[in-house]
Design a protein around this nucleic acid. Sequence first.
DNA 1: TCCTGACTGTACCTTTCAGTACACAGAGAG
DNA 2: CTCTCTGTGTACTGAAAGGTACAGTCAGGA
Lengths: 189, 189
Amino acid sequence: MAREVAERADIVPVLAEIFREHGFAGASLALITARTGLGKGSLYHFFPGGKEEMAAAVLADIDGWFEREIYVPLRAGEDADGARTSLAAMFTNVDAYFRSGRRSCLIGAFALGDTRGRFAVIIDGYFWRWQMALAGALARAGHASSPVDLAEEVLVGIQGAIVLAQARDDEDVFRREMARLRARCGLMA
Amino acid sequence: MAREVAERADIVPVLAEIFREHGFAGASLALITARTGLGKGSLYHFFPGGKEEMAAAVLADIDGWFEREIYVPLRAGEDADGARTSLAAMFTNVDAYFRSGRRSCLIGAFALGDTRGRFAVIIDGYFWRWQMALAGALARAGHASSPVDLAEEVLVGIQGAIVLAQARDDEDVFRREMARLRARCGLMA
DNA sequence: TCCTGACTGTACCTTTCAGTACACAGAGAG
DNA sequence: CTCTCTGTGTACTGAAAGGTACAGTCAGGA
């Protein structure tokens, strides 16, 4: 038997793309073995809980990425200038991560329909921590009036832009919404 | 055998709820027979093309509803006042239809992931006709500058509000976004 | 060196899947 | 009454689903 040792960490991003493209129910083990190149033996070695554990690992991985790359920087910028810089960085990173709307938000997609129930805690946490970190940065950047509300508006805009960009198969839909949101956050370049 | 004659038109809304809750891949025939109360015989009598034809019928039904209840009224209001009235009606009907974000947008959900490919034409048409009808009404209501852009912004907001409201399990998220969009369309009540 | 334990492929299990076949029920037309 | 045509339930199919069992493979440590 050819032995090519794999690591759990290498598999998770592949699983993420599969769940993004096919959803939880549509991601069959046959598809997963084909795309990861791993047999069921290896798969169940790394994820004894099966598909459910795979999806949970993917969500945790995504959550970790956003925590590191988005939320932490948002919380970091202490003065108004630092806050504005981290806000600008957020929009740049979000555009790159979602590939201008070509890549869907797995956590948003899982929030729709019955999949939500299985992963409610992580879904809720993901959006809540994002909104709070963003609201803090907005407040420090000078939006004293209603930063929590504006933060909600931004998250709604991002999620909606992903849906509409995919529906229309047009990246510009996403980019235009990002420009509107940037402007609303006082980031006219 | 008990004979309770069903009509295709009565089944479609039930199918719609099933697809909304479980997605295309997750909606099994077993689930469908249970929820509709119809055996496979009847189901395949009405929809010889199976699940795919059921989903297509559902999407066509939804599309027809929006055409009748939303797009036609939007196109109807001829003067500024009529346009403003139809805009207000749109927000009221959208809030009712999506049950303040408790009910997801099936067409938006199908746009994410591989399901889109099967129904690309109807998905694209749904959003495009909505945006054009809305842009016309906005223009007549006095938004001469960029009505097509504002219409896109509204659709993005509605879709995003559904995602975030479901993720957070909170109708108020949806209602707040509707209030923002109304204001942006010049409809302060 | 051999032993241990992490990893891997394959054969197999039960259940469920979408879909088919077909006999039958019943209402309306003649 | 009978004939026809639209529905309906049920038994069935082969394929695919998720998951288990297990023998085997190799690297690293003792």
